[in-house]
Computed example of a mutant assay.
Amino acid sequence: MAAHPSQPLYLTGGADGSVQLWEWGHPSCVWSPRAPGAFAKVTRVRFSDYGNKFAAADADGNLAMWQLHPSAQQHDTTQPHAPARPFFTHQCHSKGISDFVFLGSCSLVATAGHSSESKNVAIWDTLMPIKKALVVSWTCHEGGAACIAWAGSAGALVSCGRRGDVFVWDLRTRASRHKLHAHHAPIKCVALSHQEDQYAIGAADGDIKVFSLMTHQLLHTFAGEHARSSFFKHIGQGVTQIHIDNAGRLFSCGADGTMKVRKLPERDAPPPHHAHY
């Protein structure tokens, strides 16, 4: 699922390959850009920063992108829009896309997935012809990349792998700024803080770690935040979703069926004042 940045709309992507647009308060979807049955399981849906376009990635490695037309909000809820042709579609990774992110308000999109030649993180210009759309790709993350986040203020891309490794990429130089081995277990999800100065990663062993984006130091560890596995085997293992809001609260969901919220400790807090007598 993905929420629209400003309107009461949200997207869903299904295991049947379908992509649907919904409006809060309406029992049925208002638009089905992609019907079920023709594509592999949807692995991620996202809106762009302004919400004027959205995209869906699937387990076959396809990325498809649609314009969100004004008519999508001024709809007749009894007659959902018919499936629409995406303005961009391409198989970006040969063995599946696990995550993607819009790089700000421009036409660039970064994808994280698994390719046969191990080019598991790539950047695409969605306005270019398909043969020229690939901007850069990196051979990294043995076994595939699991998730990705974009820190626009720092010009940095954070990608995490299925073997517990993290890369911080510099988009200006198109090179790696830093690499670290963050977890012994596969990383499942990543989230940036509102200030984009730190990021949290959740792993299949249920641990959450928070790192500084500037110094790459480990700031916090929350061990065993979620049980490694549970009755809900089909969901995955450990931490499955993570988010940091603008109040510094860390939200996490797990394969144990729970959602947890904790306040991240303040950084660089002044030492307590002691009066001298």
Score class of each variant (00 low, 15 high):
Asp76Gly: 00
Phe102Gln: 03
Thr111Phe: 12
Thr89Glu: 11
Thr126Ile: 08
Ser115Trp: 05
Gly155Ala: 04
Tyr50Ala: 14
Val45Ser: 06
Ser153His: 09
Ser115Thr: 12
Ala40Gly: 06
Ala156Met: 11
His114Leu: 12
Gly61Gln: 05
Trp31Tyr: 05
Gly152Cys: 10
His93Glu: 05
Asp125Lys: 08
Trp31Asp: 04
Gly152Phe: 03
Cys140Phe: 06
Ala84Pro: 11
Thr126Trp: 00
Ala55Ile: 04
Phe87Trp: 09
Lys53Val: 10
Tyr50Gln: 12
Ser116Thr: 14
Ser116Ala: 15
Thr111Gly: 09
Glu23Asp: 03
His26Thr: 04
Gln73Gly: 02
Pro36Glu: 00
Arg44Trp: 08
Asp60Glu: 08
Ile97Trp: 01
Gly152Asn: 09
Gly144Pro: 11
Ala55Asn: 03
Phe47Asn: 09
Glu23His: 04
Ser28Asn: 10
Ala38Met: 14
His93Val: 07
Leu157Ile: 15
Phe47Thr: 03
Ser137Ala: 15
His81Thr: 01
Ala146Asp: 02
Val42Gly: 02
Ala112Cys: 15
Ile123Gly: 09
Arg46Asp: 13
Ala56Val: 09
Val101Leu: 11
Gly143His: 02
Glu117Pro: 07
Phe87Val: 07
Pro86Ala: 04
Trp124Asn: 03
Val136Asp: 03
Pro129Cys: 09
Cys140Gly: 08
Val121Asn: 12
Ala35Pro: 14
Arg85His: 12
Ser159Asp: 07
Trp66Ile: 06
Gln91Pro: 13
Phe87Cys: 05
Asn120Lys: 14
Lys131Glu: 13
Ala40Asn: 05
Gly143Pro: 05
Gly25Asp: 02
Phe54Tyr: 07
Ala146Gln: 05
Cys140Asn: 08
Phe102Trp: 09
Gly152Ile: 02
Ser137His: 10
Gln73Phe: 01
Pro33Ala: 04
Gly61Leu: 11
Ser28Gly: 07
Ser105Pro: 05
Cys140His: 06
Thr139Tyr: 10
Thr77Glu: 01
Ala38Glu: 13
Ala145Phe: 06
Thr126Ala: 04
His26Leu: 05
Cys140Thr: 08
Gly25Phe: 01
Ala35Asn: 08
Lys41Val: 01
Trp138Lys: 12
Gly96Glu: 00
Thr77Gln: 01
Asn52Glu: 05
Trp24Val: 10
Thr126Phe: 04
Phe88Thr: 07
Ser137Arg: 14
Ser116Pro: 04
Leu157Val: 15
Thr43His: 02
Arg46Ala: 14
Arg85Cys: 09
